[in-house]
Nucleic acid binder design. Structure first.
Lengths: 119, 119
DNA sequence: CTTACTAGGTAAGATTATATTACCACTTGT
DNA sequence: ACAAGTGGTAATATAATCTTACCTAGTAAG
């Protein structure tokens, strides 16, 4: 998802997630029962987000609260013992997600991957 | 972490987590920069919790936002065959691919997707 | 070029929630 | 009994959000 290390604030992540979900502020506002300016101010960092709103936004955008609040590992040092970390992360996944992930892995291995493209 | 099926609301989980951490409302209030009645009302479900406050509470109680918001995924049993398969596949990845994958995992965690879409 | 439509940012007054102080009851220890 | 600690709740002053409105930029047609 975010692959951009400069997206480090919650409101920026929420904005990014909305765009990734292909939704407008107005659509999100309607889903949340808010007015559009409220969504605008939230994404500008000028308005707080309640825990309930955060929960709904995570459902809408299909992201996790951990990630929105910056509790998920965002950057991994290239020379870490990454396999063990990956194993720990895998254990946290739901079975369906793990199945999806296996497909991602397969796709990665079979691609020639000239680098640079986002997931 | 979990466990009491009757603890199904966020404020109840926050109260439970505070007690598990062995803290009083007054101590938490001081750590959060709030007054004690605010903590009391939060745990009674009469006051909203902002995302920032939620984040701080998770740090203080050593819990995850996913759990507080009821999005904690079922974990896969450590001896799940799919987990071993995934680990073997991960070992075949190039380092850069693995780094990218870890980010995907972080974003994917606990997202509720019954939609069965392809990746 | 003009019109219309969509998306998004922002201002101002009305409305609502929170902050702050205070007082209450209960418990524990002196 | 007393004091200290914990937690629930009320009243009002304060701060936040809501709601409406107006503005700009971009885009697609006429």
């Amino acid at each position: 998802m975010t692959v951009d290390p400069q997206v480090n604030s919650m409101h920026a992540r929420l904005k990014e997630a909305r765009k990734m979900a292909g939704l407008s502020q107005g659509q999100v506002a309607k889903l949340l029962g808010l007015h559009r300016p409220s969504v605008s101010e939230i994404e500008a960092g000028n308005r707080r987000v309640s825990a309930d709103e955060l929960s709904q936004l995570c459902d809408i955008y299909d992201i996790s609260p951990d990630w929105v609040l910056g509790k998920s590992p965002e950057t991994i040092s290239p020379d870490d013992p990454k396999l063990e970390l990956a194993a720990r992360e895998l254990a946290k996944l739901k079975p369906d997600d793990l199945s999806r992930l296996l497909k991602v892995i397969a796709a990665m291995r079979s691609s020639n991957d000239t680098g640079g493209e986002k997931i």
